[in-house]
Design a protein around this nucleic acid. Structure first.
Lengths: 160, 160
DNA sequence: CTAATATGAATGAAGG
DNA sequence: CCTTCATTCATATTAG
């Protein structure tokens, strides 16, 4: 079912179904998520290049892809946060003890745990992380995680 | 076959009522289609909320659902249009009058007349609309239709 | 039961 | 940053 979502850099290979848009691999997603959850939600140009270099080890990716990823990530995070915040607000609207049974506001129900409030990427070492990174390039990922400590320094959200 | 507003039980194995995704009821579909055919193909945020409120009377629905619905509607309309436009173009390619009978684009063996160029939702009052809205909440629907006049048209550029 | 289709939802990319 | 478009994934429904 899952057909190599990897974006090949050489479209000349006729055997491949020419993937027009980049599909980040699980390992790449893990890395990006980790960085994002580390507080780097808006990496500067320099950092973006670094991140791209890290991701490249797991598949072809460009600076633009990383840039877009973080941009979309921020947007989606904010939107999701607003959404469930609004829902909560409505749920708690007025503490007048009224028995309302209508879900008149939002019924967004998704099967995933979503909510990046706490994913567990910060710690990993266990969970599904291992599942993703088995066999191929586990060593690379470890090194990258160690390197994460050096970067940092980027508080989320910046005046701008 | 009456479907309880999206909260129907599992078809066979009574496991978890894992409601994966929202299923708009016939009434809701009618409303959405009507709005879409009224010219509002891309409702702004405010309008989306209003639409959601209207739909809520017929079943649980969130702003996101409405947002997704219109987005998908636009996309698919355009895609469909492009698709059959391409087919037409192929049929008329070169005025040499060649008898080509190849369906290079798609099989398309469905009984529908496809092409939502004219569905009839704009007028309703007749057709299958009545069939949908009988018995339950016809009154609500009428009021909603009257309210439709208040909304301004959000004409969007057809060309990208 | 399996295959195909319809459609809600997620996401990469781009424009303003 | 925000909105929008195009593509893709996942699932519900229907046809065989």
């Amino acid at each position: 079912m899952d057909q190599e979502g990897g974006a090949s850099q050489s479209p000349s290979t006729s055997t491949e179904p020419v993937r027009s848009r980049w599909s980040p691999k699980p390992e790449q997603i893990l890395i990006l998520e980790s960085i994002f959850n580390s507080g780097i939600v808006n990496p500067p140009k320099d950092e973006t290049v670094r991140i791209r270099k890290m991701l490249e080890k797991f598949g072809a990716v460009g600076d633009t892809n990383v840039f877009y990823w973080f941009q979309n990530r921020r947007s989606r995070s904010r939107r999701r946060q607003r959404q469930l915040q609004a829902a909560t607000a409505v749920a708690a609207t007025s503490r007048g003890a009224e028995n309302h049974q209508n879900m008149t506001t939002m019924s967004m129900h998704h099967p995933y745990s979503n909510s990046e409030i706490d994913l567990g990427f910060g710690s990993l070492s266990n969970s599904l992380a291992n599942n993703f990174l088995n066999g191929s390039s586990s060593s690379q990922v470890s090194s990258f995680f160690l390197d994460l400590s050096s970067s940092s320094g980027g508080c989320e959200s910046n005046n701008g």
